[in-house]
């Protein structure tokens, strides 16, 4: 009788497999053991957490109303401006970073710019830009614009690299210039996804605007930070509820628009 067993492709030697599993579990046990937990502190924190949930359930929109609404307004302004400028700048960077349409030096420059932009989290960029330009929405606007270029630039470049080359070849064969080829052969192929991604990025930028506010880059995040610092959990709850509502609205809207363009 011929028996059959699926061969182990990854680690063919059984002894090695056992050794690797043992090493992995040992590391896991030692690793978990090395995390110090101060149970006393956790207990105190639970109480604070309870008060926070209480504040969240009884949000206070009035005490800091002026701060909250100016914060929301600033965040929205920051989001809209940085998304629009980010999209406009991501188009040349994305085109430059697409291997199939760009000369090598431009490709390398745009790719590295995008890679650097993507490797740094928004908060880190914001800390740096706040140090450069001072507290406020301008640093936030720059941070989000920079992050948008990295995000959309990369996705646009990938989209361009995956286009149907025949359409490009056909337009090239009519004697079209480089710009005409981009506009007539490539843009129609990438546009629906580009619009969808832009709205998706709008969502992300609003959420990020709340986070980078905490490190001083203006907007609703600054208001949230102040409330928490002063133990005004009901005001913080109000801010969080507003953020959630706006994010939900953005998500719903962008989903609807994406469906509509495709």
């Amino acid at each position: 009788m011929r028996t059959w067993q699926r061969p182990h492709y990854l680690v063919p030697d059984k002894r090695w497999r056992i050794a690797l599993w043992i090493a992995f579990f040992l590391y896991l046990i030692v690793g978990i053991g090395s995390i110090e937990v101060n149970w006393q502190r956790v207990y105190e924190g639970l109480e604070r957490g309870g008060r926070f949930i209480e504040g969240f359930l009884n949000p206070n929109f009035t005490r800091r109303a002026a701060d909250i609404y100016s914060g929301i307004y600033e965040s929205l302004t920051m989001t809209v401006t940085s998304t629009v400028v980010g999209i406009l700048l991501s188009i040349p960077f994305g085109m430059g970073a697409a291997r199939n349409i760009s000369p090598k030096p431009i490709y390398l420059f745009c790719r590295s710019f995008i890679a650097v932009s993507r490797s740094m989290q928004e908060v880190i960029v914001a800390i740096f830009l706040v140090a450069l330009f001072g507290f406020g929405a301008f640093a936030g606007f720059l941070t989000l614009t920079y992050a948008t270029i990295g995000f959309l630039g990369k996705l646009l470049a990938e989209e361009i690299e995956e286009i149907d080359k025949k359409q490009l070849e056909a337009i090239a064969s009519t004697g079209a210039s480089w710009l005409q080829r981009m506009h007539i052969a490539i843009w129609p192929q990438v546009m629906p996804r580009m619009i969808g991604l832009s709205f998706y990025r709008f969502d992300i930028n609003f959420r990020e605007s709340a986070v980078i506010g905490i490190v001083g880059a203006g907007g609703i995040g600054a208001t949230l930070n102040t409330s928490i610092d002063r133990y005004e959990y009901d005001s913080a709850g109000a801010v969080l509820i507003l953020i959630i509502l706006i994010v939900l609205a953005c998500e719903y809207l962008s989903g609807w628009i994406r469906k509509w363009v495709s």
Partner: peptide, 15 residues
């Protein structure tokens, strides 16, 4: 190229 028309296997229209 303007004076040379080309017709393709899978049409190559901008869909």
């Amino acid at each position: 190229r303007r004076h040379i028309g080309m017709i393709f296997q899978e049409y190559a229209l901008v869909e």
